[in-house]
Each structure stands twice: as structure tokens, then as C-alpha cells.
Simulated assay, not measured.
Amino acid sequence: MPFLGKDWRSPGCSWTKTEHGWKRMVFYGHELEDSNRELDLKEFPCDNNEHLFVEDICELATPKRRKNFYNNNTKSQFSFRDKWIYVQKGSTKERHGYCTLGEALNRLDFSSAIHDLRRFNYVAKLFQLIARSQLTSLSGAAQKNYFNILEKIVRKVAEDHYNPRLVKELLQDLSSTLHSLTLHVGRCVLVGNVNIWLCRLENILKWQQQLSDLQIPKQMCTGMSFSDLPLHMQDKILYNLSDACDIINLGQATPTLHILSENRMLWKRLCHFHFSDKQPFSRNLVLTKSDSVDWKLMYFTLQKHYPVKEQYGDTLHYCKHCSILFWKDRHLALLLKDCGHPCTANDPDSCLVPVSPQHFINLFQF
């Protein structure tokens, strides 16, 4: 049975004829995108031994039943596993509508990304920027998904003790935004019942207390520790850090690391890394009595005026040829030469642009 979707290039769905009429076949493990229907999947025999199922589509009879279906033991009504999304900024003959920040937040697989250490900081920073300025632009479903993923982030920090400082800053910014919206701006800008937001505020306070009480256990090390490394190797490790807070915190561990963390050349390299392209760079030099630059003081002086560079192990990528935003799987890229999305360019790698968290938000500002 031929069927065309909204996009005329789409092959549509697979249908089969039964004694009760035409029914759609669904591959096992794939999630259905229609959030307004209840699905009753039944196994359907197939010649090629593929796991196919046939769904009985039943419209929800009343709004009350629909509401119970969404809220009854469900974390989110969206469960997409997509690795890419088409970023559409206007209507065309082939596609109607446009892509929003909430849709990207729902459809891109951020739940799995937080379990990858290379992507954790990226997702946490993106959520922090959304908490500061973009929370009210999200739809109700996107806000629900946002807090569900945020709960997973807090749980991962509590279990793995990974980068609690960044998540504490995220929760502090989110708490400040919600207090400002509920007290000063008004609750009309928030989607949903006020009791839902009061419950979310309570959860944020609970998460903040949980991270404040977090105690990182001291691990018994039977082999070589960081302090056992030669001084030149410890110094080289410090030179590879791009976060000033990490350098200062590491310097508080031992007297030797404190001396290495105060190295003048270390802070000079840090200043040039973050602010060498900022103008005017030379006018903000902080001179000591001996007419030599106090590079540590200069770093924190420049930090007040300019944003620091951000480094992430892995980021989202944007294909300029296809206008697709996607996670690039480095394993598939090495083994199968898969660029991460259905690209039609002759040289897909030349069209890819890494997307910073701020660039991600800018893509959906029309």
C-alpha cells in the first residue's frame, strides 16, 4: 500500500493487509513518534525472519484518559533515539514549519550522551546556558525532558563523582532563574501548573544539598600515584589543563603541586591560550614592581572582561551541506567511515563544523 508522508521524499511507513484492515508494521526496538495514540503491538509473521510487529491504533477517548496516559508512571512522553536532526529555519516546498530548540532537545540523544565522559561537560554546559536564558522558550514536553535528563546528570555525579563543580553551577543558575520567573516576572511565562514548578524547585534544592554533602572517598592506591611521578611529568600535566580552577585546586593537594601551580610561565601560557585573540590584549597587562607581568593576576583581570575558550572532548557537529545537527560516533567513523548522518556531499568531512553550546542555542534563534 503506497503512502507518502509530509515530506514527499520520504518512503512513508510499511503497511500490511490483515482481516481487520490495513495495519502499520514497526521494526522491533524503534520508538513511535505519535504521542496522541495508544499502541498495542502484536507480532506478525514475516518471510525473512525479521522481528516485525503490527500495531492496533486506538484514539484516546477523552482528554482525561489522555492525561492519565501521559502522566501515569511516565517520565517523558518522548523517547527518541536519534543521533541527528534537520535544522530547518523556514518553510520550503519540500518541508513545512521550522525546527525549535525544544524539538532538538527532545530528539537528540542527550540521555546517552551524559554517560560518555567526552560529552558530559558539553551537555552540562549546554543545560547551564538553557537555564540562564532559554528555559521559557522550551515547550512543556521539552521542559519535562530537560528536568528528566538533569536528574540523570545529578545521579551520575553522585555515583561517579565526576565534575561536581560544573553541575553545582548549573543548579545554582537554574534555581536563580526559576526564583526570578516565579517572583518577579510572573508564573504566566512558565508552562504547566504552578505546583509542578514548586515541585521542581524542591527537587533542585534537594539536588543541591545532595551535591553539597557529597564526599569523595579516598581510594587505596597500591601502585604509583600522581605524587610519585617525576616533577617534569607533573609540570607537563599541569600545562595541559585549560581551566584555571582545576590548576588552583590541584595546587592545594600537596606543597610540591602548589609550587608548580604558581609557575609564572604556566599562567602566561594560560593567558595566551584564552585571550591572545582578544583586543586590546596588551593594554590589560598587570605589572609588578619589578616591571614583570604578573600573569596569574592578569588572567583573572582579563577573565572579567572576556569569555574564556571552552574545550570539550566531543561536541555536536553541524553539516553545512545538509543543515543537519548530529552526534558524530567516532567508532563508526573509524570502522565504517560513517560521518554520522545521511550526507549527500562528495566530501562530508569538509562540511562539518563543531558546534559549541552557545552556537547550538544560536542555531534556533530566528
Rank of each mutant, 00 (worst) to 15 (best):
V54Q: 11
T62Y: 01
P354R: 10
L285K: 09
H258I: 00
N106Y: 00
D7W: 00
K320L: 13
Q208W: 01
N240V: 00
R107M: 03
K93W: 05
R187F: 03
L129H: 12
F364A: 07
S292W: 00
Y70I: 11
H359S: 10
G186K: 00
F226G: 01
Y162P: 00
F78D: 08
F275D: 14
L335G: 02
L178D: 05
M1T: 05
S111V: 06
S292Y: 07
A104P: 05
E262T: 12
D40A: 11
L205T: 10
Y70V: 08
E50K: 13
Q134E: 15
L334V: 10
L101F: 05
P11C: 05
D243R: 02
F360G: 08
W197D: 06
N73V: 07
D213H: 11
A244D: 11
C343F: 05
V189R: 03
K6P: 05
T256N: 14
K64S: 13
R187E: 11
D7F: 01
D40L: 14
G21P: 08
Q77D: 08
D56I: 07
D173V: 07
A104G: 08
S276N: 09
L336E: 15
E159T: 12
D291V: 02
Q365E: 14
F53Y: 14
T254S: 14
G97R: 04
L205H: 10
P354I: 06
E103T: 10
M1P: 05
P354C: 07
R269E: 14
T222R: 02
V157G: 06
R283M: 11
L32M: 14
F366P: 15
K156D: 06
G5A: 08
Q172H: 01
H232A: 09
L257S: 11
G5P: 03
N163Y: 01
Q303D: 13
W84H: 12
D116Q: 14
N163T: 02
F120L: 15
S79H: 12
P307T: 12
G223E: 11
M233L: 15
F80V: 04
F147D: 04
H96N: 12
R200C: 01
A244K: 04
I361K: 07
M1V: 03
I237H: 03
G140L: 13
A244F: 02
R107H: 06
P354D: 06
S242E: 13
A253R: 07
P280Y: 02
D349F: 09
